[in-house]
Design a protein around this nucleic acid. Structure first.
Lengths: 202, 202
DNA sequence: CGTGAGTTTGACCAGATGGTCAAATCAAGA
DNA sequence: TCTTGATTTGACCATCTGGTCAAACTCACG
């Protein structure tokens, strides 16, 4: 294991390559389905060399998840209490859908973990995420009280946004099997936009 | 392997026990994450005994998936072209949400498979499912043409229903981590109902 | 009962997999 | 260039896992 001094050029490069490879493999096969050999091969390293940078398969997975959690929650984090309600929510939705399009591996990484009961991130869920969501539902509730948007169950409003946007990344195969050549996001964007405009208009 | 005569009492019991156990294990850990030993233990059989009834782990998985596919698609199948549009769609949604509540393991079984690229059911997706969906989107389109429901992209309308309802089964841990003691379906039912009433009203 | 088909199991195997280690190689600063 | 720490690797190990097999046991039926 490299010492914890300032990381060398090589350390930076290899750690990044490993995490990139791990994202590919874990998101495609889940934690159990991924093998260290596979990740090493994809990172262009031998297995022992990979294990020189991370102590175990689990450590890679953990590093990956915790490193991506911020990115993943950034859009919700940026929901601005002082902005225009409808605009803020539609922007949030837009960014989430954008992320499904541009970062589908990240979405599937979390989906894999969640669908199997989140054995490795239960912590983050019931603390960090819960705190963030509760903070934002307060804002939503205020907007509803002020009559700026329709009154709805704020938690379920957020769940619906997650469900609708991440569906396109997580269940990509199914969506494409049905749509054929048509670009899923081409139709999804206006559909979801229309849906929330209608839903949120008081 | 048992002969293919009429199944004996014991064969019926054990096959059923195996499929039930397999549903538990596969839905909780995915195909790769499940072990034959685990399934056998949960079914109350020894591993060789289990493999006397099914030739391989893969065979159990396949039998399970194909056996459940009909159940899973029944609600959409029952969408009646001659019924009242709004009522038909809301009924479909209601049944899908009910299934998320009552058959979450089945939902997660499919979710596990889909999120990893559906390596074992690509066939069924791009044929059976596609055919069924296209048949039903025709009905939806007709209803839109007749002005009975709002004009929307029919495929994305169906995707949205899948996403919103299955989210509660597939990402159950996350939903519960955030809601705490509150029953997710208590709030989900009226939320989703309201959402589609607003969305579909022309 | 007795018998043959149906059922169950302990012992076993081969390959996969996560991880270790000592030795070899490389890189950068004195 | 020399030295020392960083990096890389081949060989290896223990465990897990899907699957096999012959032998033992059990059940239903004549």
């Amino acid at each position: 294991m490299p010492k914890d001094r300032a990381p060398t050029r090589i350390q930076k490069k290899n750690r990044a390559a490993i995490l990139e490879a791990a994202l590919n493999v874990f998101s495609a096969h889940g934690f159990r389905g991924a093998t260290v050999d596979q990740i090493a091969a994809e990172a262009g390293l031998s297995k022992p060399n990979l294990l020189y940078y991370f102590p175990s398969k689990e450590a890679i997975h953990t590093a990956l998840l915790s490193g991506l959690l911020d990115t993943w929650l950034a859009p919700l984090h940026d929901l601005d209490a002082d902005g225009d309600p409808m605009h803020e929510i539609l922007s949030y939705i837009h960014r989430k859908l954008q992320m499904s399009r541009e970062l589908p591996r990240e979405s599937r990484l979390f989906a894999n973990e969640l669908v199997q009961g989140a054995p490795r991130i239960h912590e983050a869920l019931s603390h960090d995420l819960k705190t963030l969501v509760n903070e934002k539902t307060k804002i939503l509730t205020r907007w509803m009280d002020e009559g700026k948007i329709a009154r709805l169950h704020p938690h379920h409003l957020i769940f619906s946004i997650w469900a609708l946007t991440q569906h396109y990344a997580d269940f990509d195969v199914q969506v494409r099997a049905i749509l054929g050549d048509e670009d899923p996001f081409e139709g999804a964007e206006p559909f979801i936009d229309t849906l929330y405009r209608k839903l949120l208009t008081p």
